[in-house]
Each structure stands twice: as C-alpha cells, then as structure tokens.
Design a protein around this nucleic acid. Structure first.
Lengths: 100, 100
DNA sequence: TTGGAATATCGGGAAAAGTCGATATACATT
DNA sequence: AATGTATATCGACTTTTCCCGATATTCCAA
C-alpha cells in the first residue's frame, strides 16, 4: 500500500463522497434495479448520475480509488460494479495508527 | 478538521517524513543543541537541513501540516519549534474509523 | 452482424500543488 | 542603531490534478 497514493486518492471531495455512498449502497442508490449490493456493489453509471460529474471523470476517479486499494470491481456483462475493499481500509487504519 | 485538507497535507512524501521524524526528535535531530524536544519540538532549520529542500519550501510545508492540525508551533526567540499534535492524529484515527 | 448501451481511455485546458530564489519580517546581539 | 540569524511570505516556473468532450472498447440484443 503506497502511502502517498492512498492519501492522494482521499484528497478529493467527490472521491470521499463515493466511498461514503458505497458504505450503504441500498440507501444511496435506490434506483439500481436487481442489485446485489453485497456481492458486487454499485455500477459506474449510478455513481456518475449521483455525483453530477461526467462519465469519464467518474470512471477515472473509480480507478484512482481502486489503485489505492480502497475499492474493487467486478465486471458483470456490460456493467462494472464497484464496492469498498474493507481490507484496504483496515490497512489504512493500521497505517495511521502505527506508521504515521 | 477538514477532511480533504488533512489528506492533501498527507499526500507528500517529504511531509510524511517530517511527521515521522517528529515522532522521535532526539533520534532524528541529534544536532539540535539544548533542545527541549518534549515541550517545544524541533526548529525549522533542523528540519530543513535534514530534508534537503529549500528553506521556503519547508516553511510552507510546516504551515500546511499545521493548518491540517497535525502539528503545532511554539515561537521561542528567533526560532519556531514544531511538534506533533497528537490530538490531531486522534481526530484522524476517528475520521478513518468512523467517517470514511 | 450490426446497433446500442456501459465503461474505459485519450487529449486538452484550467486550476492547484511543488519547489525555488529573492525579499520581508521578527528577534537577538553588539 | 546596525548587523546577523531564523523564519515567513512573495513571485515565478514546472508538474500534477481536476474535469471535460470525443473516441475506443467491450459486451449484449435484435
């Protein structure tokens, strides 16, 4: 886990919001049909709509968060679903508590 | 505590190093004479020398870390001493654990 | 197998951050 | 008061980040 990379990923209001939304997907994305929130998460389009930013920006943001190991993705058909990577958050906690 | 501001402050290798140095000043700054590390911390010049970056850059970095509430300063004569603000780190822990 | 929908990637313009040297300020000493 | 030292601030330049629209890719459905 690259320290600077993680903190950079967290240095943006929209990206922090996305992480927060993904904490309780059912609550923040009531529109997503047939969603298996637990297993796969939320698809890019839903996140994009909620954010109000462009599709390309959100796709980019999601890959930044993924490179930082804070989320991970599952491709299902033409959709890519993203969910939180709790192992990454654990590693971040440890980083703050022990290494910073 | 502004979330984005804290993470931006942490998004830089040199600033992370400074925070780490300030964890055990006596070990990282053996040159500082008559230093009351516990009470006041380490002065700007020592940090600057160790970092290898310019005086202005380090002064700026220290104020970024201070605005993020991760360190605080004490002026003593012509020196400004900086030390870690453990309350800020506690707040950061809480942020990670509960709000992110 | 062609068309459409979802996502990713590319290229770019504007804003912010990184970093410097020069200068200003604040304080101490003579 | 004048000089010297430590730090802060300023102006400039370069690099990175923010965000967009356009295009490419991937997959599904007709």
């Amino acid at each position: 886990m690259d320290q600077v990379e993680v903190f950079k990923a967290l240095s943006n209001k929209t990206r922090l919001q996305i992480l927060n939304w993904l904490k309780s997907p059912a609550q923040h994305f009531p529109d997503q049909q047939n969603a298996d929130f637990e297993n796969v998460g939320v698809c890019v389009g839903q996140i994009q709509m909620k954010s109000g930013l462009s599709q390309s920006t959100i796709s980019e943001y999601l890959s930044i968060l993924q490179r930082a190991e804070l989320i991970n993705s599952t491709r299902v058909g033409q959709w890519t679903y993203y969910k939180r990577n709790e192992a990454g958050f654990k590693a971040l906690e440890k980083l703050i508590n022990q290494e910073l």
